[in-house]
Design a protein around this nucleic acid. Structure first.
Lengths: 222, 222
DNA sequence: CTCCCACTTTTGATATATCAATTATATCAT
DNA sequence: ATGATATAATTGATATATCAAAAGTGGGAG
């Protein structure tokens, strides 16, 4: 079918990509679900070609796994894949904190501090586990830190990783509770010292909190 | 045309991907070159579909840039893109060094040390700037460090980044000379201390050597 | 001579059709 | 009944065809 110019997608490829991504991130397509091109094409009322291309992009985002002459399925979620993701996120976010400390403008730092305080306030008030707006704001803050360093590549990588984080969150009980007060404000303050090592250390501690929660869950389930 | 089963590629998509990648990495396709699907399809004797898919994958590797309804071209190489790449590499490799220090087996560490010594010896002897085998071994060592931590995601990301590194090297005069003796042996020794902070610091210094060379070039060109 | 527009050409996006590999199912011998 | 095998149905890979956007081109108005 033709591309509806009013929906904001330039191509069908993009529309299919966005649709499938939303379905996976929201958990409407469970990990392991087979993604059959013709089926998806029929359901979305397009030909198999944009579907194929969208699946390829989702694969490079880590949301879909596939093998030649076998097909694609929604990527598995396991303790191992989550740990893998967290380690990668630690890499990117620690570097982002460094670069942000070194390069961000004073204006940017002020804006980050403000937003961090706002997010901490919502968290302390006890955000709903599935408060989309809050989670979205939280992600935006981390992205903004990555953007603050002025290196688009870091920002792009973190964006991709954040997709996988959202997917994981659909399949584990998120535990945002029990965070120290000023969790994000402290992080931004460390960045604002302009000391890369300090910014990195603080970010590492920040990301590792998630890793620790993850490992508790794994052991608890053992 | 049909897939030749003897060439090691399961699909035409893969073959086209490998061919174009090799052409870009070797500099046979210069940055900025327009990549017209039908042309490539005719030249490679396939239909436009595998070409489209291969271009999508190359785009996610950062070797190709494209926009909807505009087409693809070989990614630009500039001081900014190179710096972006180096920052990303610093992120991944520093984390890789940490994880390797924390998780690699003694056997792995011994093998890394051996290979590092070998590479340093070749470097000290003055490797040809375009000695493919040596460059390949050098890349393999870094990949092996990333693999040593036991997190496939880090390894995959570094592999992708290394492609961009190879591309950049086709367009700048590589300066492998002037490295301190034991450049890689020292790095692996730091990892073998099992102290993540120390491993990371050493790796950061290692990667930043490239960043510094890069910035010298930029200033020199100004 | 320059600028703008109608027209042609090129090329990206994608539907349809076809082939081949894989998987499911039915059949048969043991 | 069990397992192997032939056959049918499914589905991935990809060639061909079509449509539409964009880029290039020539001619006429100013």
């Amino acid at each position: 079918m033709d591309t509806n110019p009013s929906d904001g997608f330039a191509t069908l490829n993009e529309r299919v990509y966005a649709t499938l991504q939303a379905d996976i991130l929201a958990g409407r397509l469970a990990p392991g679900t087979r993604l059959v091109r013709r089926e998806l094409a029929k359901r979305l009322e397009v030909s198999p070609i944009p579907v194929t291309e969208a699946l390829l992009r989702l694969e490079s985002d880590g949301l879909v796994e596939s093998a030649p002459m076998y097909g694609a399925r929604v990527a598995a979620v396991s303790a191992a894949t989550m740990l893998d993701h967290l380690v990668l996120r630690e890499a990117i976010e620690c570097q982002a904190a460094r670069e942000c400390a070194a390069n961000a403008s004073e204006t940017t730092l002020r804006a980050l501090a403000e937003e961090a305080a706002r997010i901490d306030a919502v968290m302390r008030a006890g955000a709903d586990p599935d408060d989309r707006a809050h989670d979205q704001a939280h992600g935006a803050l981390h992205l903004a830190i990555a953007a603050g360093g002025g290196h688009p590549g870091l920002q792009r990588e973190l964006q991709r990783l954040w997709f996988r984080r959202q997917m994981h969150q659909a399949w584990v009980t998120a535990t945002d509770r029990g965070l120290p007060p000023g969790w994000h404000a402290g992080l931004v303050a460390a960045i604002a010292t302009r000391d890369p090592a300090r910014a990195e250390a603080h970010m590492r501690f920040h990301v590792r909190w998630n890793t620790a929660r993850h490992q508790e869950r794994v052991e608890g389930a053992g």
